[in-house]
């Protein structure tokens, strides 16, 4: 199991004058699935984007540690896998072409074996050579999991992981989440009870709405 730790210290986010959340202090460790819950528009996606270093917090810090060494922001991409409904892949390429391009841009060798394993696991093996413009929304969602897991990240951030998925798709994704959580840190931001049922601990964004500064 990897020794990955995510530390949120006094995290505050404002959009203009609107407070999204305040004073989030949490520690997440590998080997577990953690949940982030809250109603629509409560700031779940904002929090996961801050954790993934996509947007900056107004105040506070997010520290990613691998074996107690701080991961510098420039290297963070190598350790994070991210799935979200607002994440889009390149429609004009096939699924496999997308993954090859992503590996090359990351500066790593395309792991064909791992890709095939994930394609099989998510039931996309027969469609991997199709241009993804023709994919259904559920297939695109499953492909995002392959995108997120191909480079074997230690911190997997899933924002509404089962959106657009049918029951079979959900089962496959849940299996994958539990498998990944054996060795990695998995964060799930969702409203779905079945998604949150996988989590060891769930934090509610609604508990961080008061300005304590």
């Amino acid at each position: 199991m990897t020794d990955y730790k995510l530390v949120l210290e006094n995290l505050v986010k404002y959009f203009g004058r609107r407070l999204v959340f305040s004073q989030i202090n949490q520690i997440f460790t590998s080997g577990n699935v953690y949940g982030i819950s809250g109603p629509n528009g409560s700031g779940k996606s904002t929090l996961v984007k801050i954790i993934a270093n996509i947007i900056s917090p107004t105040r506070g810090t997010v520290v990613h540690l691998l074996s107690d060494s701080i991961i510098i922001p420039e290297k963070l991409l190598e350790h994070i896998g991210f799935v979200a409904p607002y994440l889009y892949l390149y429609d004009e390429f096939t699924a496999e072409e997308n993954l090859i391009h992503f590996s090359n841009i990351r500066g790593i060798k395309f792991d064909k074996e791992r890709a095939e394993f994930l394609f099989r696991k998510l039931n996309l093996i027969d469609r991997k050579d199709d241009i993804i413009r023709g994919y259904s929304s559920g297939m695109k969602q499953r492909l995002k999991f392959i995108f997120a897991l191909l480079h074997r990240p230690q911190c997997i951030i899933l924002d509404e992981p089962t959106s657009n998925l049918d029951n079979n798709g959900k089962e496959r994704v849940y299996d994958l989440i539990l498998e990944e959580a054996k060795s990695n840190l998995v964060l799930v931001a969702s409203n779905e009870d079945s998604d949150l049922a996988l989590c060891k601990n769930v934090i509610s964004i609604e508990n961080y709405k008061q300005n304590k500064t």
Binding site: L77, Y86, Y88, Y90, I105
Partner: peptide, 20 residues
Amino acid sequence: ERGTTMTLHLIASTTTIFSG
């Protein structure tokens, strides 16, 4: 427009993106 900005965020550093 295609919403792939975030995908780029997740796979490449800012220097790589600007240089590319």
